[in-house]
């Protein structure tokens, strides 16, 4: 009997912890990869035009996205900044002004629908000029549009 107990006490019952950091690391990477940082839901239709003389913008943190296109529900032309539609054109000015205070080198990426009239685009641009957000990028599609 006593021999039986002794043997049980001798066997190692510990969980090996040497690989624990690796497991944590793995999980960390997994979540880093799968987490989508604030996916903007487009409330306007933006079918981008194609162009060839394009440049790449590497500094993603400088970019402020502005979407111009037809509203998905009402069909009217509308402007979306981040994830909200703009009610009034002058709101663009305020939003851009606030953004420029935070990041003076902001580049405004204009995602404009192909069918939008340039007159409407000019109105948006006038607002950008009012806010002194002068660096713009006309976002284009590289492949054939869907």
């Amino acid at each position: 009997m006593s021999a039986h107990f002794k043997k049980k006490g001798q066997s190692k019952q510990e969980i090996p912890t040497a690989s624990l950091p690796d497991i944590i690391f793995m999980l960390l990477i997994f979540f880093m990869v799968t987490t989508v940082l604030r996916e903007t839901e487009l409330l306007v239709i933006t079918r981008l035009p194609q162009a060839s003389a394009v440049e790449k913008i590497d500094q993603k943190r400088l970019i402020q996205y502005v979407y111009v296109g037809q509203n998905r529900e009402t069909g009217e032309s509308g402007v979306q900044i981040n994830d909200a539609l703009i009610d009034d054109m002058t709101d663009i000015r305020d939003a851009m002004y606030r953004r420029l205070v935070e990041e003076p080198a902001t580049i405004v990426s204009l995602n404009v629908d192909r069918e939008i009239e340039t007159g409407y685009l000019y109105d948006v641009q006038q607002e950008l000029r009012e806010a002194d957000a002068l660096r713009v990028n006309y976002s284009t599609a590289s492949e054939a549009p869907q």
Partner: peptide, 13 residues
């Protein structure tokens, strides 16, 4: 996905 497009400078106010 890097941002691609035509970079322009708007005229100042």
């Amino acid at each position: 996905n890097t941002e691609k497009g035509i970079y322009m400078q708007l005229p100042p106010k």
